[in-house]
């Protein structure tokens, strides 16, 4: 998917994460802040990158502010932000396909 415009999903509440995606320069630029960076920073990064790969996103500036979200929440927020950036978040999501 191509990031067409900037979009955001999620909140800064505990157990959530806020994800912002913006059009990129041909690569993935990830900026990550987390309240549990020392223990889980690497895992969060891996989850975000895997999710982008599944969505076939290769050019994006993505900012993640994590407040102790579970993996499933992180995935949900990244996916929602990407679909929103393409104006495609409201219907016909490939549940169980690219979103899984």
């Amino acid at each position: 998917m191509e990031i067409l415009r900037s979009a955001m999903a999620g909140t800064l509440e505990s157990s959530d994460a806020q994800v912002i995606v913006e059009p990129g320069n041909g690569r993935i630029e990830l900026s990550l802040q987390s309240s549990v960076m020392n223990q889980y920073g690497r895992q969060i990064k891996a989850t975000v990158l895997e999710t982008l790969e599944r969505l076939d996103v290769s050019s994006v500036r993505i900012t993640v502010v994590d407040k102790g979200a579970l993996d499933c929440t992180l995935k949900a927020r990244v996916e929602c932000a990407v679909y929103r950036s393409c104006g495609a978040s409201a219907a016909n999501i490939p549940w169980g396909g690219a979103v899984r």
């Binding site: 999903a9 999620g10 995935k75 949900a76 927020r77 996916e79 929602c80 999501i93 549940w95 899984r100």
Partner: peptide, 13 residues
């Protein structure tokens, strides 16, 4: 839209 993404992964995970 966001709620559906959360719901899907909660149900699956």
């Amino acid at each position: 839209d966001a709620a559906r993404f959360s719901l899907y992964h909660a149900l699956k995970t």
